[in-house]
């Protein structure tokens, strides 16, 4: 049986996949035949240890804990196989993730080795230009959004004149909308929403009238009908409008 004597010394992991790969390696588990119950237990034990030490457990670790627990419970239940229907192996997706992540973890190590080598090599220009204080002139097309944001950050706020222009906006209240409707809309009339807002309505007008109509529907003063989503809304004034008001 796999020994539990070696307690994890809580090395730092780059996420749940990193931790899982560690456990799989430590216990010499065959990735194609993961003993779900065992791995889930080991994983949860690690999480508990970390919690005991008051370490903040990132939510990603807890999501993986939930996934593993679910896979463990599935592995313990008898499998119902319906003929002709291939049950999807929940472990397959996890294995795919582990293989991908492990590959990139190896690549990251290789990059680190290149970094070690190249950090001692200095070119006549290049990288070190970026560390000098006065930066070189910018060619068209070489600036990125990030450069602009950095430049914006560097501007002190006091230098920016606050805009003084006032833009007058015509207010259209819901009450006004209802009053207009009251005058133009008679009991029994069938009107479409489009004709209520008229030709080329502004966005504000559409929204105001729409809210006004919602309000009238709530009060039961009009009824509506719409054949399917996004189609024309047909409105009908009910008797209650006149009675209530």
């Amino acid at each position: 049986m796999l020994s539990n004597s070696c307690r994890i010394q809580l090395p730092s992991f780059e996420g749940p996949l990193d931790l899982l790969l560690y456990l799989i390696r430590r216990d010499e588990i065959d990735i194609y035949d993961i003993p779900m119950a065992h791995v889930a237990d080991q994983y949860l034990e690690y999480i508990r240890d970390a919690q005991e030490m008051n370490l903040d457990i990132a939510s990603e670790y807890l999501v993986m804990a939930a996934t593993l627990t679910r896979m463990k419970s599935k592995s313990l239940l008898p499998i119902h196989r319906i003929d002709g229907e291939e049950e999807e192996d929940p472990g397959a997706e996890l294995r795919r993730q582990l293989i991908l992540y492990r590959t990139f973890r190896e690549i990251a190590k290789e990059l680190h080795r290149s970094e070690e080598t190249w950090t001692d090599i200095y070119t006549s220009t290049g990288e070190r230009d970026r560390w000098s204080i006065g930066n070189t002139a910018v060619e068209p097309g070489q600036t990125s959004l990030l450069d602009l944001l950095r430049a914006l950050d560097n501007l002190s706020e006091g230098e920016i004149e606050p805009p003084t222009q006032r833009i007058q906006r015509k207010l259209l209240t819901i009450t006004e909308c209802i009053q207009t409707l009251e005058k133009t809309f008679h009991t029994g009339d069938m009107v479409s929403f489009r004709s209520v807002v008229g030709q080329k309505p502004t966005r504000a007008k559409i929204v105001s009238y729409f809210i006004a109509i919602l309000e009238l529907i709530r009060r039961g003063w009009i009824s509506f009908h719409q054949a399917y989503p996004f189609s024309e809304i047909e409105l009908k004034r009910t008797e209650r409008w006149t009675v209530d008001s």
């Binding site: 990139f104 690549i107 190590k109 990059l111 680190h112 970094e115 070190r128």
Partner: peptide
Amino acid sequence: GRKPGKLSRASLETLAV
């Protein structure tokens, strides 16, 4: 003081992806 430090493991992994 001007040359930035080496990249962290998280940065290297992200960069690899």
